[in-house]
């Protein structure tokens, strides 16, 4: 056997990842699958779910990821795995009477959370609606582009993950790669996701996004402060979504969409704290949730501040 042959063999073996295995098994069963290639190493194939790993194993994985990302993007990366803060349940409220549809939040989110620029992924969709029709999702427009906003006769409704208390996306995941954390954030373990996209079908808000291609982010725009369950760089073939900026909120910061919004339409806080901004809103404003009839029980509220 020549060295070349040997090399080829190990290469082949390396490619035989857990995901490939599952894919083959599933397609044998007649499923249509993505057929994407994954760059996981052998250890990743045999490793347990992140949640069930020991501290030492988690640390090892994090160290490996940090090294990998730092090398790829030429910047020192931090991959946090900070646990929830005790006694928190995060909630969000958006003032529809304030939002002017400027999309500052969309791009602040892209930047903070390392969304792929090409192919483009946006976690926040700002829907333009007509005053006459009210909140009519069916006739809303996400591609509006006038010289100035707000446009006469219209209002704007940004939609991202509604962080349901009763999330359907997590229940349909066949491998339990996505779940709700104790602080209420619905997260995805990208290394465990097999890309079957069941969750995308189950989500009634279109909040989950699939990496159809290898995500591309310019080196100088990458955010190296990441969380394992949040904004760390993703790979082709996995699903991603808003995490309330888990890397920020678990150290007490506001999500970046809250910080960028020029009209202060976005409010965030701890639902368990009776003194929080979010509780004040729930108590004093006219609040509603999207598609209430589906019983998803979002922790993302819309309200009218006026």
């Amino acid at each position: 056997m020549t060295t070349n042959d040997k090399h080829n063999k190990t290469d082949k073996f390396k490619k035989f990842t857990r995901k490939n295995f599952l894919e083959t098994a599933a397609s044998a069963a007649g499923f249509m699958l993505t057929g994407c290639k994954f760059d996981s190493s052998l250890e990743e194939l045999f490793r347990q779910k992140f949640r069930t790993l020991s501290e030492a194993e988690k640390k090892e994985i994090i160290d490996r990821l940090e090294k990998k990302y730092s090398k790829k993007y030429g910047k020192k990366f931090k991959v946090s795995r900070k646990e929830p803060i005790e006694g928190t349940l995060f909630g969000y409220a958006l003032d529809l009477s304030r939002c002017i549809g400027c999309r500052r939040c969309v791009y602040a989110c892209v930047k903070e959370n390392n969304q792929s620029r090409k192919p483009q992924i946006h976690w926040i969709q700002v829907l333009q609606m007509e005053d006459e029709k009210g909140t009519d999702l069916f006739h809303s427009d996400v591609h509006y582009n006038p010289p100035k906003v707000p446009e006469e006769g219209h209002f704007y409704m940004p939609v991202a993950c509604q962080q349901c208390r009763n999330p359907q996306c997590t229940t349909v995941c066949p491998v339990k790669a996505t779940w709700q954390e104790p602080d209420g954030i619905v997260v995805v373990d990208y290394n465990w996701c097999i890309g079957c996209r069941n969750c995308m079908a189950a989500c009634p808000y279109g909040a989950r996004h699939f990496n159809w291609g290898e995500p591309h982010i310019p080196q100088d725009e990458i955010n190296p402060n990441t969380h394992y369950l949040g904004n760390r760089p993703r790979m082709k073939g996995v699903v991603e979504k808003c995490t309330f900026c888990i890397q920020r909120v678990r150290i007490g910061k506001y999500p970046s969409c809250v910080e960028i919004c020029p009209v202060g339409a976005r409010k965030f806080g701890n639902l368990l704290d009776p003194e929080s901004e979010i509780r004040y809103i729930l108590k004093n404003k006219r609040v509603f949730v999207l598609k209430e009839e589906l019983n998803t029980q979002p922790k993302f509220y819309y309200f009218f501040g006026i």
Binding site: I100, C102, R103, R104, P119, Q120, H122, N145, P146, V149
Partner: peptide, 26 residues
């Protein structure tokens, strides 16, 4: 900071670009 006291209505802004249409995502 946000409202000019002599003319307090918030001034319209230029929106950032719309998302790429699905059929054009590459």
């Amino acid at each position: 900071h946000c409202h000019n006291p002599h003319d307090p209505k918030f001034k319209p802004l230029k929106p950032l670009p719309p998302p790429v249409r699905q059929e054009n995502i590459k």
